[in-house]
Design a protein around this nucleic acid. Structure first.
Lengths: 247, 247
DNA sequence: CGAAGTATTGACCAGATTCAACTCGCGTGG
DNA sequence: CCACGCGAGTTGAATCTGGTCAATACTTCG
C-alpha cells in the first residue's frame, strides 16, 4: 500500500539509501566499499523537502550538520554588518553544504532553497567519528573541503580580473559543465536562480546581467527565454570566459 | 660549540620543537596535550629558510605536504591560462599553507616568500594518519580548512561589493588585527609585499593603490613611508571598511 | 484579472583603469 | 665614493566599463 503513511515513509527511507542513490558516484561516500557505505548510510538523516524560499539553516545558527544536496538547488547568502547581502555559492545535487561552519561552530551564512529541494543531513559529530574508522571517508571529506577552497580561489579570480561579459560566460560554462557531470544536458537547462541572484553572485548589477544576456543572444551564443537557457556555442562561451586582458 | 654543523643542526632542531614554539597557541597543534604534541612534533620536517622571492612550491607540483609558517611571510599566486596572475593569499606566521592542494593532489598555485621565511613542513600522509589517532588534531585540521573557506567568502564579498577605498581600509585593518594576534604592534609594521602585490590581491591597479594611500595619508588615517606603515586612526579605518553602500 | 515581483531597456554618471611621464630609493660596478 | 641604472612608487589626464536611476514590459500567482 504505497499510499499509507507507513508505506510512504518506507519508500522515502528506501529512497535515501546511499547504496542505490544515483549520485553516489559524485557524493561524499564515493570511495567507500559496499559495507562501509552502509555504515555511512546509517548516520544520515532524512529531511522533509524544502520548498522554494525555505532555508536549510540560518546565518549564525549552531553548526550541527553538513548536508548533501539530493535534488533541487540552493543558494548561500551572507549578510555582514548592516547592509547588502552577498551570495557566495550555488549548490547543486551531490554537493556538500555547511562545511564552512565547522570553525566557529556556527553557519556563516543562510542557505536557501531555490526550488523544491531535498537534502541528506549528516550530523557532523557522527561523520567525524566515522571518519576516524574509515580513512577513505576522511580523505573524501578533506578533498571536498579542499575543492571548495580551490573553487573559491577561482571565484576570486573571476571577481577581480574578469569583465562582466567574461563573468557571465564563465557562469554559463560552469553551469553547463556541472549539469553534464550530473548526467543532464549541458546545452539546455532551466535556471533556478533569478537574475538578481546571478548578479549578486557575480558582483554585477541586475541590469548588467540583463544587458549582457541580450548581447549574448544577439551574438548567437545562447538563446535565453526567461529562465530557460539553450547554449548554442559552448566553445565560444568558454573561449570568451578564458580570454585574457589584451595588452 | 654552537658553531659546528652538528651544533647548528641541533639548535635548529631544537628551535622547531612545537612544545617551545611561540606560535603553538595559534598553530595547528593548539588543542593538543603535551604528549600528543610530541607525536605531532615527530612528523614535522625542517626546511632551510627561504630567501625573498624563492618559492616554497610551484603551481602544479605534486601535493605532498602542508606547511606552517614559522617566521616571515609568503604570497600565493595562481596563473590560469595564458595571462595575468592572481594573488590569492598572504600567509603570516602560524598560518597553514597548501591545504587547497589535497583535492587533485597538486598545488593550485605557487607560494613565494616575500622576505626571508622559515616554515615547518608537515607531510600530509603522516598528518592524516596521526589525525586518525588524535581527534583533537583532526578537529583542528577541519577548523583550519573551514576558516580558510570563511576567509575566502569574506574576500569575495570584498571583491564584489567594496569600493577601492574600502578594500584598502579592510586590508590594513585586517593586517593590523593579524599582527595584534601574533603579539606585534597593531599600529606600526612593515609591509613585506609590494604595492603591485597589494593591488593584485585586492583587485585594483597599482596606481589606484598608490592614490588611495596618498588620500588616506591626507585624511590622517595612516602614515606611510615606503613599506613602513603607521596606523593613526584604526577605528576610522574599520568604520570605512564596513561602511555600507549608501542608497 | 489585477498586483507584486521580476526582467528589460535607455540615459547619464562616476569610480577605477590605462597610458604616460616622472621621481625616488637602492644596489652595483666603475 | 659616486654615478648610473633599474625597479618600485607616485602623479596627472583621458577613457571606459559598469553602476545608478527611471521608465516600461513581462510573469506569475493569488
Amino acid at each position: 500500500m504505497p499510499d499509507t503513511a507507513a508505506g510512504r515513509r518506507r519508500s522515502l527511507l528506501h529512497e535515501t539509501r546511499c547504496g542505490n542513490c544515483s549520485l553516489s558516484s559524485l557524493c561524499l561516500p564515493l570511495a567507500l566499499e559496499l559495507e562501509d557505505i552502509d555504515q555511512f548510510d546509517a548516520i544520515i538523516r532524512r529531511r522533509a523537502p524544502l520548498k522554494k524560499g525555505e532555508s536549510l539553516f540560518r546565518q549564525g545558527g549552531a553548526f550541527t550538520s553538513v548536508y548533501a544536496v539530493r535534488s533541487g538547488s540552493l543558494k548561500q547568502v551572507t549578510s555582514e554588518g548592516s547592509g547588502a547581502d552577498q551570495l557566495t555559492n550555488f549548490y547543486l545535487p551531490s554537493e556538500l553544504v555547511g562545511l564552512d561552519g565547522i570553525d566557529e561552530d556556527a553557519y556563516p551564512g543562510s542557505v536557501i532553497a531555490l526550488e523544491t529541494t531535498t537534502v541528506c543531513e549528516i550530523p557532523f559529530d557522527r561523520l567525524d567519528a566515522l571518519s576516524e574508522r574509515l580513512p577513505k571517508l576522511r580523505t573524501q571529506l578533506y578533498r571536498s573541503m579542499s575543492k571548495e577552497m580551490r573553487d573559491d580561489r577561482r571565484m576570486m579570480r573571476l571577481l577581480s580580473r574578469k569583465t562582466a561579459d567574461q563573468r557571465l560566460a564563465t557562469f554559463f560554462a560552469s553551469l553547463s559543465d556541472r549539469f553534464r557531470r550530473r548526467g543532464y544536458s549541458p546545452y539546455s537547462f532551466r535556471l533556478s536562480m533569478s537574475r538578481a541572484d546571478i548578479g549578486n553572485y557575480l558582483g554585477l548589477a541586475v541590469e548588467t546581467v540583463s544587458r549582457i544576456l541580450g548581447r549574448f543572444q544577439q551574438q548567437g551564443l545562447v538563446a535565453v527565454s526567461g529562465r530557460e537557457v539553450n547554449i548554442l556555442d559552448l566553445d565560444a562561451l568558454i573561449e570568451l570566459a578564458e580570454e585574457e586582458g589584451c595588452h
